[in-house]
Write a protein that binds this DNA or RNA. Structure first.
Length: 299
DNA sequence: AGATCTACCTGGTTGC
DNA sequence: TGCAACCAGGTAGATC
């Protein structure tokens, strides 16, 4: 499921492929894919706004992938309230669990799970597919992007924080450490995989409260999280479920998981069978020996 | 402030 | 074999 490293990998691939490309037309194959609240465009406005637009930038914030569109010079119609020819627009995709964004050659037919597509002027097609219909796209003017509550509330990027700032973010909080890692308003981009993997590497029990952990170990967690995210990006992400990059290729980091999805398997460090519990409503895998609770000693 | 539950979905796996 | 039950995941929203 796409978390920060997977979305980053997709963004890099799309950036290479799409920057400067012009959109001929969009299509909504399943209208429910488009979220139109908080100032985002509805279906008809979306279709008008993307037609003729140029893709200027591809970026990522947390798990959100954004395409910046501009210069709807060739658009036959402008969206209501939008000036033709100068209509900057953000397309924000959230892939949730099974969403895919891929660039396909001209003539490729949409699959049964393709929910939205952009036909490019050069014939290629950008497909947004999602078997489970959890993924969403929003089309927003720049002001609307800032007013999107989820986006506006996103916490800092974990790879842009130094260790003391990371520790300060969590220090003293009484929620469980894993719940905080997963909370997008605390830290943007971490999901179940990288929360479990980083807590294992840092030797921290996922159900410890942040307040019980202490600054030195929080800084160690920062190092573990940054390392695991960087390694995963270098491996082009983790392919479980449906994840592929913009070119349809799988990632490789799933082969390096130390705990995620390995319950009952021997710990790679101490060979103790990995345990499973639930934290913040999520399946959580950890090593009962390497990740002792803070109250059990071992500062 | 934080935890817990439900809803949203459906492909894949497990159990009978 | 065939089918039902369950599970996975991120976020929103309600409730305690």
């Amino acid at each position: 499921m796409p978390e920060l490293p997977e979305v980053e990998t997709i963004a890099r691939g799309l950036r290479e492929d799409l920057c400067g490309a012009r959109v001929a037309a969009g299509a909504l194959l399943w209208p429910g894919v488009l979220e139109a609240d908080h100032g985002a465009l509805d279906g008809p406005a979306f279709l008008r706004a993307v037609a003729g637009a140029r893709i200027d930038a591809v970026w990522r914030r947390g798990k959100v992938l954004l395409l910046d569109l501009a210069g709807t010079g060739g658009a036959p119609h402008a969206a209501p309230g939008v000036t033709p020819g100068a209509a900057p627009l953000h397309l924000a995709f959230h892939l949730r669990m099974t969403g895919r964004l891929t660039v396909e050659p001209g003539g490729t037919a949409p699959g049964v799970h393709t929910r939205l597509l952009l036909d490019l002027a050069d014939g290629r097609r950008l497909f947004f597919a999602d078997a489970r219909k959890f993924g969403r796209c929003r089309a927003m003017a720049p002001e609307a992007l800032g007013r999107w509550p989820f986006f506006a509330a996103l916490g800092p990027e974990p790879l842009e924080l130094d260790a003391p700032a990371f520790a300060a973010l969590l220090a003293g909080r009484r929620a469980r450490i894993k719940a905080l890692l997963l909370d997008q308003s605390v830290l943007a981009g971490v999901g179940n995989i990288y929360a479990d993997e980083s807590l294992f590497r840092a030797g921290i029990h996922p159900a410890d409260t942040a307040a019980a952990i202490g600054p030195a170990r929080l800084e160690r967690l920062h190092g573990a999280l940054a390392a695991v995210l960087r390694e995963a990006i270098a491996a082009n992400g983790s392919s479980i479920s449906d994840y592929v990059n913009a070119h349809g290729d799988a990632g490789a980091f799933q082969n390096d998981f130390r705990v995620y999805g390995r319950r009952g398997c021997p710990c790679r460090v101490c060979a103790t069978p990995l345990a499973r519990t639930t934290v913040a409503g999520r399946t959580t895998t950890f090593c009962p020996l390497c990740q002792r609770p803070a109250w059990a000693g071992d500062s």
